[in-house]
């Protein structure tokens, strides 16, 4: 025995939502960002360097990822190696603070027109 009282079954020892202060739902607006909602830094959002310096490391990591390229919520979670639920809460904070803007997902009734779909098919062929 190595004296460990826990095993892999116990899950991560830092509770996944610890870095969100225990919050499991984003912001007062209660928005649940779609997995493919796109997140970009918001230059007009009103957040300055000072506001940014007050952010925690996870918030800043996400902001850094958005800065390099507009990314989907799913990609941010994969790249930051954080669970999606946690990323949603952190993004809610960033949205509140005016650091980022988040796109609306495509409503199903407005699926892309034929031109886009043709472009997708051509793109897949060329892959």
């Amino acid at each position: 025995m190595n004296g460990q009282w826990y095993d892999a079954e116990a899950g991560p020892l830092v509770r996944p939502y610890a870095m969100t202060g225990g919050r499991t739902k984003p912001g007062p607006h209660g928005v649940r960002f779609d997995l493919i909602a796109l997140v970009a830094v918001d230059p007009q959002g009103g957040a300055d360097e000072e506001a940014e310096s007050l952010l925690g490391p996870e918030h800043r990591a996400l902001l850094g990822l958005c800065r390099s390229e507009t990314q989907s919520v799913a990609e941010l979670a994969a790249d930051a190696d954080l669970p999606v639920g946690v990323v949603r809460v952190l993004l809610g904070d960033l949205l509140e603070g005016g650091h980022v803007k988040v796109s609306r997902p495509v409503p199903p009734a407005q699926l892309p027109d034929e031109r886009i779909l043709r472009e997708v098919i051509e793109g897949l062929r060329a892959l």
Binding site: V31, L35, L38, G98, V100, S103, R104, V106, P107
Partner: peptide, 24 residues
């Protein structure tokens, strides 16, 4: 409901970069 509500601050729909299209 799964999308952002209409009056969401900072939520943009049609401007430059975010007009990007993601298909699932």
């Amino acid at each position: 409901d799964a999308g952002a509500p209409d009056a969401e601050p900072g939520t943009v729909e049609e401007d430059g970069e975010l007009a990007a299209l993601a298909l699932k």
